[in-house]
Measured scan of single mutants.
Amino acid sequence: DSWHDTVDGIELELHGADEELLKLAKELLKRGVSEEEVRRIIEELLK
């Protein structure tokens, strides 16, 4: 799946992010949310 590559990229960027955020990112990508949107959501949550 192409979203796996996206998640791997996000995981590299979010090496400090907790497991729950990564699960959320994967779930959003699986549901068709764009990579940009996922990054934006996670950045908001990390604030």
Rank of each mutant, 00 (worst) to 15 (best):
D1G: 12
D1R: 01
D1I: 09
D1T: 08
D1K: 03
D1H: 08
D1W: 00
D1E: 13
S2L: 11
S2K: 11
S2N: 14
W3L: 10
W3H: 12
W3Q: 12
W3T: 10
W3G: 11
W3R: 03
H4K: 12
H4C: 06
H4L: 13
H4M: 10
H4S: 09
H4Y: 08
H4Q: 11
H4P: 12
H4A: 08
D5L: 05
D5F: 04
D5A: 07
D5E: 08
D5Y: 02
D5T: 11
D5W: 03
T6W: 13
T6G: 11
T6C: 04
T6H: 13
T6P: 09
T6M: 12
T6A: 10
T6D: 10
T6F: 13
T6L: 09
V7L: 09
V7E: 08
V7Y: 13
V7D: 07
V7C: 01
V7Q: 09
D8W: 02
D8M: 14
D8L: 13
D8S: 13
D8H: 14
G9Y: 12
G9Q: 06
G9R: 13
G9T: 14
G9V: 12
G9K: 13
I10Y: 09
I10H: 07
I10Q: 08
I10V: 08
I10M: 14
I10C: 02
I10P: 09
I10G: 07
I10N: 07
I10R: 05
I10D: 07
E11Q: 11
E11P: 05
E11F: 09
E11D: 13
E11I: 15
E11N: 13
L12C: 05
L12D: 04
L12F: 10
L12I: 14
L12R: 04
L12K: 09
E13Y: 01
E13T: 03
E13R: 01
E13S: 03
E13V: 05
E13M: 05
E13K: 02
L14T: 05
L14C: 04
L14G: 04
L14W: 08
L14P: 05
L14I: 15
L14M: 07
L14Q: 04
H15Q: 11
H15I: 12
H15R: 05
H15W: 14
H15V: 14
G16Y: 12
G16M: 07
G16H: 06
G16W: 11
G16K: 03
G16C: 02
A17E: 06
A17D: 05
A17R: 06
A17V: 15
A17F: 06
A17Y: 12
A17K: 08
A17H: 09
D18I: 07
D18G: 13
D18F: 09
D18R: 10
D18M: 12
E19P: 15
E19L: 11
E19G: 11
E19A: 15
E19D: 13
E19R: 10
E19N: 08
E19M: 12
E19C: 11
E20W: 15
E20Q: 13
E20M: 14
E20C: 04
E20K: 14
L21F: 05
L21C: 03
L21P: 00
L21Y: 04
L21R: 01
L22V: 07
L22H: 05
L22S: 04
L22R: 10
L22W: 14
L22K: 05
L22D: 02
K23S: 05
K23D: 03
K23P: 01
K23A: 10
K23V: 06
K23H: 04
K23E: 08
K23G: 02
L24T: 03
L24M: 07
L24I: 06
L24E: 01
L24G: 00
L24Q: 02
L24S: 01
L24K: 03
L24C: 04
A25Q: 02
A25E: 01
A25C: 01
K26M: 08
K26C: 03
K26R: 15
K26S: 06
K26E: 09
K26H: 08
K26D: 03
E27I: 14
E27K: 14
E27P: 00
E27C: 15
L28H: 00
L28D: 00
L28K: 00
L28W: 03
L29S: 01
L29G: 01
L29W: 03
L29M: 06
L29A: 02
L29Q: 02
L29K: 05
K30W: 08
K30M: 14
K30N: 14
K30P: 00
K30D: 09
R31H: 06
R31E: 05
R31T: 07
R31I: 06
G32C: 02
G32Q: 01
G32P: 01
G32I: 01
G32W: 02
G32N: 01
G32K: 01
V33A: 06
V33E: 03
V33Y: 15
V33F: 15
V33G: 02
V33D: 02
V33R: 07
S34T: 09
S34A: 10
S34Q: 05
S34D: 06
S34R: 05
S34K: 08
E35H: 14
E35D: 04
E35V: 15
E35N: 07
E35W: 15
E35G: 12
E35I: 15
E35C: 08
E36H: 12
E36R: 08
E36Y: 15
E36L: 14
E36S: 11
E37I: 12
E37M: 07
E37K: 06
E37A: 09
E37L: 09
E37P: 00
V38H: 00
V38M: 03
V38K: 01
V38L: 02
V38W: 03
V38D: 00
R39G: 03
R39Q: 04
R39H: 04
R39C: 03
R40Q: 07
R40M: 07
R40T: 05
R40E: 03
R40S: 06
I41Q: 02
I41D: 00
I41H: 03
I41L: 06
I41W: 07
I41T: 03
I41P: 00
I42L: 06
I42C: 02
E43K: 12
E43C: 06
E43S: 13
E43N: 11
E44M: 14
E44C: 13
E44Y: 15
E44V: 12
E44D: 10
E44A: 14
E44Q: 10
E44N: 07
L45E: 02
L45W: 11
L45Y: 12
L45R: 04
L45H: 05
L46K: 05
L46R: 09
L46P: 01
L46C: 01
L46T: 05
L46G: 03
K47M: 12
K47G: 07
K47P: 03
K47Q: 09
K47D: 04
K47N: 10
K47I: 09
K47V: 08
K47E: 05
K47A: 09
